[in-house]
Design a protein around this nucleic acid. Structure first.
Lengths: 253, 253
DNA sequence: CGCAGAGTTGATACCAGTCAACAAAAGTGG
DNA sequence: CCACTTTTGTTGACTGGTATCAACTCTGCG
């Protein structure tokens, strides 16, 4: 039995300064001094059960959340009651920035898996940010990233056909897994086919068929939610250009 | 507020404190004192010719812009060269917030009509914002609004059919015109059918057909870019539920 | 007046949504 | 541990909305 684990846990409890997500999360790029100030206001490591909501539609903006692990989806619910998935959020990504405008949330954030979050009370974050230019800058950058992801999402939906959207989706997910230090080629999807469909603006059957097609063509290996990307370069190709080159041909790679 | 007609023009030139857009633009909700500080850094009322670009893809983030009048579009250009319209921007709305993440613009902002903009150097805005909590808060709110518009845009694209998207588009535009004090029922579209198509993820012919259909059904009057909304409530109805008469029931059995 | 760009309208093909049945996991309780 | 139920994912047949191609009209402008 090694004695190191005990120290590790203690270090984790010391907060942002030693957090493994430091490069991804708010603290990136701010000084040790500043870090300590931020550290004081962060409530750390709340565990979240799958299906649990961080906030609901209409809730006042009380905090923003950083996913430490696990995955979340943000869902917008229209008047008619149909749900549109605005985004998926993996480890290191910020959740809760809708509500900046009106002060109340226009989405719900739902845990897709068991997860842990750091909860950052928004009022205090804003207050500290005025004192720390570095943190303010970093906050704006993080918000910018989330805007960028929204734009990428838009790009997936507009005038792209099903196969392209699905390839784009897998490609993007792969990149994000790479960024957080996980395998970009082998992973378990945290979300259902239906979630993917609602995110991509497709019918769930179409998503299923799309996966099957990619598997038939030897681009990926799918077993339920387990994904194995066999041909990343071919996936990229399908994500960017349409697939008009190769009509339905089997036995050829 | 004391009104002095003759002084108005002079006052307008005095900047933010007397700008007619005050309620829409950055200054909203911050004090007179703070206003003066902001005022110092704003370069006012640069005229922009139709087709002119405020910034191009890859340009470093140097300033954000507030449209005083006229209209802009922001266009994202994919590697394959096809253009996706991210948003339209009317008077009082902020342009240039893409680039927050990377520090360089991922869109181009193009004037659709002759226009005027206030140019706010970003570095200085950020610096002043750290000194003025009210301004920082307002900046976050404005950013939040733009995120909200992106989400609305997403909602238009996902799983909605052409007629619905077009109704939603006109409805949204109408609301925005109302907000800036213009007629919500009679206006001239600043953008072409092709721009609308690229915004809605449709073929331009489909947009044209959609307008024609709405006219045939007595919902709007269209002459080129002139739009006259005859039946706003019917437009709303089409924006939210599906087509005119229900051919069949949807939802679960 | 005549041109160019913008917008409309028509015919056709095809992608993807819908309905429906089935298969495979994942819970549930004995 | 195994039957049962429920949820989730797959596959097939069919249909309809919309993209595409193409011809035409209209508008604004020099």
């Amino acid at each position: 039995m090694p004695d190191a684990p005990v120290l590790d846990l203690a270090a984790l409890r010391r907060g942002c300064a030693h957090c493994s997500l430091q490069q991804l999360c708010l603290p990136a790029g701010i000084s040790q001094d500043e870090l300590r100030k931020l550290d004081d206001i962060v409530r750390r490591r709340r565990p979240v059960a799958p299906g649990e909501r961080l906030y609901r539609l209409g809730d006042p903006l009380s905090a923003v959340y950083v996913a430490r692990d696990g995955a979340f989806k943000t869902v917008s619910i229209s008047e008619e009651g149909d749900e549109q998935i605005i985004g998926f959020h993996l480890a290191g990504e910020l959740v809760g920035l809708d509500a900046l405008a009106a002060g109340t949330h226009r989405c719900e954030a739902v845990a897709l898996t068991a997860a842990n979050v750091c909860e950052v009370p928004f009022e205090q974050l804003a207050a500290v940010a005025t004192q720390l230019p570095g943190l303010q800058q970093q906050l704006l950058r993080i918000i910018g990233q989330s805007v960028g992801r929204d734009h990428d999402h838009l790009g997936m939906l507009v005038r792209r056909q099903a196969g392209e959207r699905i390839a784009l989706f897998l490609h993007g997910l792969s990149e994000r897994y790479r960024n957080i230090g996980l395998s970009p080629t082998r992973f378990k999807l945290p979300m259902s086919r239906e979630d993917i469909a609602r995110y991509l603006g497709l019918a769930l059957e179409t998503v299923s068929r799309g996966f099957t097609r990619l598997q038939e063509d030897g681009v990926i290996e799918v077993v339920g939610r387990r994904i194995d990307i066999i041909g990343p370069e071919e996936l990229d190709r399908r994500a960017h250009s349409a697939e008009h080159d190769e009509p339905r041909r089997r036995g050829r790679a």
